[in-house]
Design a protein around this nucleic acid. Structure first.
Lengths: 349, 349
DNA sequence: ATGAAAGCGCTAACAC
DNA sequence: GTGTTAGCGCTTTCAT
């Protein structure tokens, strides 16, 4: 490992001078010539600051803690983690991810993260909900992802549920569907997503000049009765378009369609939120999907968190290439409390 | 933050004594009375060692680096991460996870991890393959998960592919199937999995007193032609049992079955490897699944890595409750080079 | 403009 | 048995 002392020795200056230069605190304090030399040898030797040693003095590790459960059970956690990691990496931070499933106690994990000196926390849910932030986080900078704080005091990043419903339904309207059904979800915990998407569905119908008809809406909870109720919807209403709350509900529709001998993309149109990639990629290219912005939520939550920790670190951040589809948000986006993000990608086929 | 100095002051001893006690180096060096006092006040004050400060002296952070790509694109990464994190947590280590998709350069991430002082690396693939370990890892303790090193020098943990094929097929034999098909995969990169599972399939047929018939095997590569070839297999061979290489291939079979008006669990039996949870949970309870031991691979890879770093840290480890299904492996399992793991859970319905 | 020195929390060799 | 001391790599105050 190459240290400041090393490059001080080689340059013939003191460690403090090197420190000043390496931290860009040399403006008007260090001779530009000296500074240049220091920088040069540092670069030549491939010097990198030891963040752990630094943290001993500064009380700042540039480590972010990412907490969530369900990492092992949903395919969506990965996107959020990757988004958060991408932002962290761009800002010179590191991400430590812990999941609290697997029998690991949440409070213990938080303690462990604190021991490792994280500068702040990302607390992520895997489905937009109102949540209680663990009290152990309250004394640290914390940002929620895919959830909002019940008390409204913690900044959070959530998807634009209304737009998801609106865009999906508009797509079906434009596709020429006459009888557009909504296969929703009234399970507890997802009220935010359900109501937002339903409202978007209704608005898109209205803007498309179509009436809102309650009998075209079925809210599915129990897997057991799910196929039945969708089957029922098919028989009763003969919809020609379906907006599905999530992957499971898309499956119900597909199953029912197959049993009725109907082909998606020909006889009926389906737009599903977030269904598993394998469907669209390998089997049902005629399915249209609205992807939840998991990557983007992770990304902007991390940006927000870093801005809380060190406001000026966030200047000159360039948004990630992978999120070309998100609307032009400036570096000072994530507003406090509730930032709306939307991936405008209703894929056309 | 409560430091050693603090508890030294309170107890009236020196910091070094506290250090000795807290590191269990007091045996025969520190008066048991004093030791007890130290321990007591440490406990009372909730003292926790600062691993970062310690690492400055010891060159050991007790942080493990977990590297993989595809965290955002496969639903399986989460299980491995959780397994690794669980083991790390049990052994007093922390896990920093980085993924190299998202445009982040692998070498850069490795450098970053080194800067943060990781003691070793877990390098994970999302499908059992022969891989080249990045040269940047060669000077650190490293363990592969779901992959083997091309040079055979790096320890690795992989699934027992043969048993997967054998168990799945045996299940179909026991279920009374007469014509058992294998829907395999001959895409490049998964040769290990494909050949192992195929061999298991053949062995189970043999042991079941059934002939191996090549025309019952179809190896699917291209999604485009996939449904066709499975359709073809249905028409040509009229199998009554299917062993499917992975979730996509299970889907092809389900699709084809639906189109033929056949019901899984009634007309035909299907055993699929690792298909998405949502299938079994919400729609097709009659599907039988063999789950790849992602959690276990992550878990044992981490155990192995820690044993490389600090052999005696691994004593008195108790295996995680979540892996009750894995065979009784002792703490000294992961053998060097190639440890075979198997989740013996062919779920019966 | 630069360096000496102190100290972050901890470990370990060495004295007493 | 226990304390003193030095030092890990870095930042920062204070002399010079």
């Amino acid at each position: 490992m190459i240290t400041m002392r090393e490059i001080a020795k080689r340059t013939g200056v003191s460690v403090s001078t090197v420190s000043l230069v390496m931290n860009h605190h040399d403006e008007g304090r260090v001779n530009p010539q000296t500074a240049a030399m220091v920088r040069e040898t540092a670069h030549k030797l491939g010097y990198k600051v030891n963040p752990l040693a630094r943290s001993l003095r500064t009380n700042s590790t540039r480590i972010l803690g990412f907490i969530s459960d369900e990492v092992a059970t949903t395919p969506f956690a990965g996107g959020m983690i990757l988004g958060a990691q991408t932002a962290a990496s761009q800002l010179g931070y590191m991400l430590i991810t812990v999941s609290t499933d697997g029998g690991v106690r949440e409070d213990d994990e938080i303690d462990a993260l604190k021991r490792y000196g994280v500068d702040g926390f990302l607390y992520a849910e895997m489905s937009n909900r109102v949540t209680d932030v663990p009290s152990k986080l309250l004394d640290y900078p914390t940002v929620l992802a895919d959830a909002t704080d019940r008390n409204g005091t913690i900044p959070s990043v959530v998807p634009d549920e209304f737009s998801i419903g609106y865009d999906a339904t508009s797509y079906l309207v434009k596709a020429g569907c006459q009888r557009i059904a909504y296969v929703g979800c009234d399970a507890p915990g997802v009220e935010q997503a359900q109501s937002g998407r339903l409202a978007g569905y209704q608005a898109a119908l209205r803007d498309g000049g179509m009436p809102y008809d309650e009998s075209l809406v079925t809210n599915v909870t129990e897997p057991k009765t799910a196929v039945e109720s969708v089957h029922d919807l098919f028989d009763r209403e003969r919809p020609d378009g379906f907006f599905c709350f999530n992957d499971a509900r898309t499956l119900y529709v597909y199953e029912t369609a197959a049993r009725h001998g109907l082909t998606i993309g020909k006889d009926i149109s389906v737009v599903g939120v977030d269904h598993h990639r394998v469907f669209a990629e390998t089997l049902y290219p005629a399915l249209t999907t609205v992807e939840l912005p998991h990557f983007e939520m992770g990304y902007w939550a991390a940006v927000k968190l870093v801005s809380l920790i060190d406001a000026q670190a966030v200047t000159n951040l360039k948004p990630p290439t992978t999120t070309a589809a998100i609307p032009p948000i400036d570096a000072n986006t994530p507003k406090i409390h509730c930032t709306l993000l939307k991936k405008g990608s209703v894929a056309l086929h």
